[in-house]
């Protein structure tokens, strides 16, 4: 139950942004590749240098230790990375209910990473992120590398999760139909600024 607030927040390429993403709200971002949308998400996760301020609820980014900020504002990159052989070794805590919600049972923890399909990988990557209970989500084209079916499945799982947990979400998506399905508010990046996106 926390909103994500950007105050004169400036990442590379883009002009400073003022934006409030309410708890439970999904804001989509779109724009040509290289327009700076991924860089904005990276800066919001405090992975890149930036200026201005961001807040999760009442907490300022600059006053929180970076690991705490990143736990509360969780980022899901387009491509998931895995460093051990087994699924289990990537989880610090196991939430059986969460795994079940994402379509797994706890047996999946013994699976080998190499044998996961790309859809399973992305869903497990989401499970890994959500098991830390982030209050806001930064999603960088989470369904871009998935086929239509797995993409839709992941999309509806995220939307259900967002509604149930009142999570603020910024979702970068290049698919206009997807944006129309998921967005409460939508923005296009034109030049170096955000413009509201509308559908006729």
């Amino acid at each position: 139950m926390a909103s994500l607030t950007l105050i004169q927040f400036q990442s590379r390429i883009l002009n400073p942004i003022d934006l409030v993403v309410a708890a439970g709200e999904c804001v989509t971002l779109a724009g040509p590749s290289g327009c700076g949308k991924s860089l904005l998400l990276r800066a919001l996760a405090d992975l890149d240098a930036h200026s201005g301020e961001a807040m999760i609820g009442e907490q300022h980014q600059s006053t929180l230790p970076p690991p705490d900020w990143r736990k509360r504002v969780g980022m899901l990159p387009a491509e998931s990375h895995w460093w051990a052989d087994r699924v289990r070794d990537h989880f610090s805590s196991v939430d059986a209910e969460l795994l079940e919600f994402l379509g797994f049972n706890t047996e999946c923890l013994d699976w080998s990473i190499a044998r996961l399909s790309s859809g399973e990988r992305q869903r497990l990557s989401l499970a890994r992120l959500l098991s830390g209970h982030p209050e806001a989500l930064l999603l960088d084209e989470p369904t871009a590398n998935l086929d239509e079916g797995s993409g839709r499945r992941l999309e509806s799982l995220i939307t259900t999760y967002r509604r149930e947990h009142d999570t603020a979400v910024i979702w970068v998506s290049h698919d206009p139909k997807q944006r129309e399905r998921i967005a409460n508010r939508a923005f296009l990046i034109e030049g170096q600024t955000l413009r509201p996106e509308t559908w006729s």
């Binding site: 996760a45 992975l47 970076p66 690991p67 705490d68 990143r70 736990k71 969780g74 980022m75 899901l76 990159p77 491509e79 998931s80 990375h81 895995w82 460093w83 610090s92 890994r128 992120l129 830390g132």
Partner: peptide, 22 residues
């Protein structure tokens, strides 16, 4: 080489120390 992995760990809220330890 392992930039993606290190940053994935950081995104999950790991300390820098922990993310580079291996």
């Amino acid at each position: 080489q392992q930039r993606g992995t290190i940053e994935a760990k950081l995104m999950l809220g790991w300390d820098w120390d922990h993310a580079i330890s291996e």
